[in-house]
Design a protein around this nucleic acid. Structure first.
Lengths: 102, 102
DNA sequence: TGTGTATATGATTATGTGTTCATATATATC
DNA sequence: GATATATATGAACACATAATCATATACACA
């Protein structure tokens, strides 16, 4: 009962897993998430730090927000983004460390 | 000395990490790798089991082979594929389990 | 209400990706 | 060598994706 359908996966699981990894498959999104390991950042701070356009950052944050990989809080006109998924971000962190030390 | 450059990643690491996750971001590749958790399979066996064209499977296996996520052995004209990367495949397995039990 | 600043969004464009068909290559057997 | 079977490859196509520009929205404050 723990692992239904050993030889193939149902469509919902497949979609969820592929979407999760797709989020982590783009260099820009990886850089953003890696930056957020440290602390929360505003959209403009991310753009400055990583030398990206504001709209690029905003588009990617929307992507990550939709997948609930980041959350945000508002302070005046500034919006601060931070992490929001233990499992996925552990996976990313481990894989980055694995790559750094390979 | 363990984590150089806290706020941004070097290009090589970024490429390796993004490629790794790209491999896991396609439903067909996930299905193939998930199948190979069980045991080794030939190209045609994979195609039959997952209802995919032989050429589709072959193309995707080449992709996975280039990233050293699968290895193969020949037996006559048949080529059997199996897993070849502990870390990445653990990551995949964990994430599938996480999705299945969410 | 008007101005300034931060962020979000829509359209466009260039590039990347996955599947398919047709065919090539490789091995085994007659 | 000819044939059969298993796998690999190349080209073409449809579709997805990321970055960019221009502009819209949201909020703060005079």
């Amino acid at each position: 009962m723990d692992e239904p359908n050993k030889t193939d996966l149902d469509e919902e699981t497949l979609f969820l897993v592929s979407q999760t990894f797709k989020a982590l498959s783009d260099p820009t999104r990886i850089r953003i998430l890696n930056l957020l390991f440290e602390r929360e950042y505003s959209v403009n701070q991310i753009a400055e730090q990583l030398h990206l356009r504001q709209s690029t950052v905003s588009h990617q944050l929307r992507f990550l927000k939709n997948l609930r990989l980041v959350k945000f809080r508002r302070e005046g006109t500034t919006i601060y983004y931070s992490h929001d998924d233990e499992h996925v971000l552990n996976v990313l962190h481990e894989t980055i460390q694995h790559a750094l030390h390979q």
